[in-house]
Design a protein around this nucleic acid. Structure first.
Lengths: 347, 347
DNA sequence: ATAATTAATGCACACGTTTGCATTAATGTT
DNA sequence: AACATTAATGCAAACGTGTGCATTAATTAT
């Protein structure tokens, strides 16, 4: 297939290529008549501008970079990040951009993709769906002109002052989940966190602790346990801590996968959920219709999350409201189903 | 951040920019000494070439386009397409390319992204993870020089002659699944397909029919039912066809989601799986550890699928083995778990 | 010692756009 | 009718690379 250039299209139209360029970009300098003629011709020949040439001249690429980690925990990441990515792609394309989706670091060389995309001028802006940001990347982001929005966390340090972010409130979610257990009548509650991993779990734990404190619950022994986020670890935690089960009446699992792992183990041990021990998960993975008891959990509003972040980024790229910071922490939603049921009159 | 150009780097090095360019591209014209000096300087300044300028001159963008449909069925698509996408991204970055991941058509304008990416020269090659290809796209692909590999299907018509494809063998999977039921002793088997949707289900049905034929099983009544692919439809099919259940002893559900929906319904009706009715799914979604009975199903080799397709595409882009077609239909794997157990001595 | 060959580097153009400026055509003003 | 103004278009330069060709420096051959 022969791909037309703007000069060739101009020759066909009997015009100078600059007139064609201006027509395609809807310049007020061009008369409506020729503009229409050019547009019709472009349509007829399926003409598309060369993105590289365009990008070199205008410094705009028409593509947005999405930095997103690998899906490592098969199930949870696929569910959460996968559907978030889906929404992001939709919003990006809807606004006539393409999406370059990269890992934070090249898996082979370990080099930063953020730096690379910015310096090679391959993107107009960045959506960052990452847990951590090292100093070098932070420096690059800060010193470059490329706009970005963080979707996953307010990074540690003094970073967050001037950056745009939209992310779900894990503290609030942790608080709500714990309060749900409390309202269900539980008083001896533990939580399963993941200490050395992601900040979001620390926030969930903080919400857990504050809810207990606000309700005046004092527990002498340790009530937060370090359990990795997967079905298997949730399952084996229960199996390996049977004695503990006699002392508790509620579990905030911090992850749906851990929650259902724990529930399966308790089923095998003859412990009834929620009668003996109530369980609250987190994430709202898509198993509601077939996992029994149906999981009481926290839902994170992914579509809106994606929508707000994209909208802001594109505003920045196109220089509207460039001054106004978006710093939004999204309220999660408590979904009460079967594994923890709030008693009447506890509100 | 000030982004260096090659000319500025050349000035720092006290060289002409063409010498720097040749050094970075490891040209034999340049002495090892200056080459080393330039590389060191580039490293020191974190220098990266402008991708647009480079692309304009060389016609190479360093990005691969992945055309992938939206994740519409939440669970199954997220599982299957999500993990496939993950593997593709990994392979692409491993080879120092970036990935533009687009829908087949722009969700707003309906325009073809295949045509757009090719004509705007935004990609060096395309990986097509799509069910259908309309004539316009086919024409564009065929007439353009941009290499591509199909990962999802051998498209209908006379297309497939000269194109590269790697995809899982749905016919064989359907055959294997059916044979598994037969070996388990089932003789009155039905299958749940999705008629008006994707070709892959037609292939699974074809495998189903052929297996029955090869085993000499004759069934007078209709044995293939049109059931959409989701838990809910699997569930309601069983609930609405209770009379049918007395006449059958095996179900090839063609989708794990349909399979578990059907099994849940049968559980409620007091029908034992696999004792009364054995069930075989398809896809191997990641629920093995918590759905009971553990699902006997067909696994599709996603990592290898991604690896082979990427490898071939990059070979084509970089002009190695450009002549050799890759036309591979990947053998699926039968996973025998609990919902259908093969009896001894049936091999 | 000079010419011929080879190795290394510099010069200048091209890739396909956009855009400031110059030019031409059309219209309005005196 | 001559001039000033406005509208529409054309011309040419620039964006940052890569590369053919010319040039210079270094080496070898005579």
């Amino acid at each position: 297939m022969f791909i037309l250039t703007i000069k060739e299209l101009a020759k066909i139209a009997g015009l100078n290529h600059s007139t064609v360029s201006r027509s395609l970009n809807d310049s007020p300098l061009i008369s409506d008549e020729t503009k229409q003629r050019v547009l019709k011709l472009a349509e007829e020949y399926n003409f598309e501008l060369n993105a590289n040439a365009r990008g070199m001249r205008t410094r705009k690429t028409g593509t947005i970079g999405v930095i997103m980690q690998e899906f490592d925990d098969k199930f949870r990441d696929l569910q959460y990040l996968g559907s978030l990515m889906n929404s992001l792609r939709y919003r990006i394309e809807e606004n006539q951009y393409d999406s370059i989706i990269n890992f934070p670091k090249n898996p082979k060389t370990g080099k930063s993709n953020i730096r690379k995309l910015i310096q090679q001028r391959k993107v107009d802006g960045l959506l960052l769906v990452i847990q951590q940001l090292d100093d070098d990347d932070w420096k690059v982001l800060n010193e470059s002109e490329v706009p970005f929005v963080s979707l996953h966390y307010k990074w540690p340090g003094n970073y967050q002052e001037n950056i745009n972010y939209v992310y779900p409130d894990n503290y609030r979610g942790g608080y709500m989940a714990t309060e749900c257990l409390l309202k269900a009548g539980c008083r001896k509650i533990i939580s399963l966190t993941e200490v050395y991993a992601k900040d979001e779990f620390q926030e969930r734990s903080r919400g857990f602790r504050d809810a207990l404190k606000d309700w005046g619950i004092v527990q002498n022994r340790e009530n937060i346990f370090n359990v990795k986020s997967s079905f298997e670890f949730g399952y084996s935690f229960i199996m390996e801590n049977r004695r503990l089960l006699e002392e508790i009446d509620g579990i905030f699992a911090q992850t749906d996968m851990k929650a259902i792992g724990a529930i399966e183990a308790m089923k095998e041990l003859g412990i009834k959920v929620p009668e003996n021990i109530a369980v609250v998960g987190y994430d709202d993975i898509d198993i509601d219709y077939f996992f029994k008891p149906r999981l009481t959990t926290i839902h994170q509003p992914r579509e809106r999350h994606a929508e707000i972040a994209c909208k802001k980024l594109i505003e920045m790229i196109e220089n509207n409201n460039a001054d106004k910071l978006v710093q939004m922490i999204m309220e999660p939603e408590m979904l009460i189903r079967e594994s923890c049921v709030v008693k009447e009159g506890t509100e």
